[in-house]
Measured scan of single mutants.
Amino acid sequence: MTFKLIINGKTLKGETTTEAVDAATAEKVLKQYANDNGIDGEWTYDDATKTFTVTE
């Protein structure tokens, strides 16, 4: 399955996707991606669209 991350950061905005077997696995990968890029904020997840959003 494809999961999307929408980034609403102070210095970085955009989106990325990852392939994962489930939402929990995708969340780990996407949170690591955000952490690697210095993004720390509030996370939400929409199961209907398989989209995570992080807002700083």
Rank of each mutant, 00 (worst) to 15 (best):
I39F: 07
T2L: 13
V54E: 00
T44P: 00
F52W: 08
L30R: 00
T51M: 04
K50S: 06
T17K: 09
T55W: 12
D22T: 05
D40M: 14
A23I: 11
E19A: 08
D40A: 13
T17Q: 11
T49S: 10
T11E: 10
D47H: 12
G38M: 07
E42C: 09
D36K: 09
I7R: 02
D46N: 11
W43D: 00
A24D: 10
D36P: 01
T53P: 00
M1D: 09
I7M: 09
L30Q: 00
I39Q: 02
T11L: 11
I39G: 02
T11C: 14
N35A: 15
T18L: 11
K10L: 15
A48L: 11
T2W: 13
K4W: 12
K10P: 07
V21D: 10
W43H: 00
T49R: 07
W43V: 02
N37V: 14
G38Y: 06
A24E: 13
I7V: 08
T18Q: 05
T51D: 01
T17P: 02
L30K: 00
A34T: 05
T44Y: 09
A23N: 05
F3D: 00
D36R: 10
K13Y: 11
V54G: 00
T18F: 11
K50C: 06
Y45H: 01
L12T: 10
W43E: 00
T55V: 08
G14P: 07
T16E: 05
L12K: 11
A26G: 03
T55N: 09
A26V: 02
T18V: 15
I7Q: 02
Y33K: 03
Y33H: 05
G14D: 09
K4S: 06
E15P: 04
D22W: 03
D46E: 08
K28G: 07
Y45K: 01
A23R: 12
L30C: 03
K4G: 04
W43Y: 03
E15Y: 14
N37I: 15
E56L: 13
T11S: 12
T2N: 07
E19W: 15
A20L: 03
K31E: 03
A24T: 10
Q32C: 06
K28N: 07
T18A: 10
N37Y: 13
E15K: 06
T18C: 14
T51E: 04
E19L: 14
T11M: 10
G38V: 03
A23Q: 12
N35Q: 15
K4N: 05
K10S: 10
L5P: 01
V21I: 13
K28M: 13
A23K: 14
F3L: 01
N35H: 15
E15Q: 10
V29T: 10
T53G: 03
V21G: 09
K13E: 06
K28F: 10
D22G: 04
T11F: 14
K31N: 04
T55M: 06
G14K: 13
M1E: 10
D22Y: 03
K10D: 08
Y45M: 02
A24H: 10
Y33Q: 03
G41C: 02
E19F: 15
G38A: 07
I7T: 04
E56F: 11
E42T: 14
K13L: 07
W43P: 00
E19S: 12
W43L: 03
Y33A: 03
G38W: 05
D36T: 08
E56K: 05
T49K: 07
V21P: 14
N35F: 15
A23W: 13
L5E: 01
W43I: 03
D40G: 08
T18P: 01
D47A: 14
I7S: 03
K28P: 04
T17I: 08
A26Y: 01
N8P: 03
T2P: 05
G38P: 01
Y33L: 05
E56Y: 10
D40L: 13
T51F: 03
V54M: 05
D36L: 12
D47G: 08
D36A: 12
E42H: 12
T53W: 07
F52R: 00
V21S: 12
L12I: 14
K31M: 09
I39P: 01
V29P: 02
N35Y: 15
D47R: 08
D40F: 15
T44L: 07
F3G: 01
D40V: 15
T11A: 10
K31S: 04
K4Q: 05
K31R: 15
E15V: 11
G9Y: 09
L12A: 08
E15H: 10
K28L: 12
A26H: 00
M1S: 11
I7E: 01
L5T: 01
I39M: 05
K50I: 03
T2Q: 10
E15D: 06
A34G: 03
I6S: 04
T25W: 07
G14M: 15
T11R: 08
E42R: 08
T25Q: 13
V54F: 04
L12R: 08
E15R: 06
T25M: 12
T18I: 15
A20N: 04
V29A: 10
T49F: 05
I6E: 04
F52Y: 06
N35S: 14
E42N: 09
K28Y: 11
T16R: 11
A26M: 02
W43G: 00
A26S: 02
D47L: 07
L30D: 00
K4I: 12
K10Q: 12
Y45C: 01
N37Q: 13
G9P: 03
D47S: 12
N37T: 07
T49G: 05
N8Y: 13
T16G: 04
G9D: 03
E27Q: 11
K31G: 04
G41T: 01
K4H: 10
E42M: 11
D36W: 08
A24K: 12
L5C: 05
Y45G: 00
D46T: 05
I6W: 04
K4E: 03
F52A: 00
E42A: 12
M1Q: 12
T55H: 07
Y45R: 02
V29F: 15
T11V: 12
L5H: 00
E56I: 13
D36Y: 07
E19I: 15
G14W: 15
V21K: 14
K50V: 03
N8E: 08
K4Y: 14
T49A: 08
D47Y: 09
N35L: 15
V21H: 12
T17C: 10
G14Y: 15
T16S: 06
L12D: 06
I7L: 07
A20Y: 03
K31W: 08
Q32G: 07
N8R: 11
T25S: 12
E27F: 15
E56T: 09
N37G: 04
E19C: 12
T16L: 14
Q32E: 09
V21A: 14
D36H: 08
I7P: 01
K4V: 11
T49D: 04
D47E: 14
T44F: 10
I6V: 13
D46F: 04
E42Q: 11
L12M: 14
L12S: 09
A34R: 01
N8I: 14
K13M: 11
L30S: 01
T53R: 06
K31V: 06
G14R: 13
T44N: 09
T55F: 08
T44C: 07
T2D: 05
E15S: 11
G9F: 14
A34N: 03
T16N: 05
V29K: 10
G38C: 08
T51H: 03
I39W: 08
V54W: 02
D46K: 03
E56C: 08
V29Q: 13
T25I: 07
I39Y: 05
N35K: 15
E56M: 11
F3S: 00
I7K: 02
M1H: 13
A20W: 02
T16H: 15
A48W: 08
A48Y: 10
V29L: 13
E19M: 14
A48I: 12
T51A: 05
T44A: 10
M1G: 10
E56D: 09
E19R: 13
K50G: 05
T18Y: 09
D22F: 03
T55Q: 07
K31A: 05
V54Y: 02
K4M: 08
V29E: 07
A24P: 09
T53I: 08
G41P: 01
T53N: 04
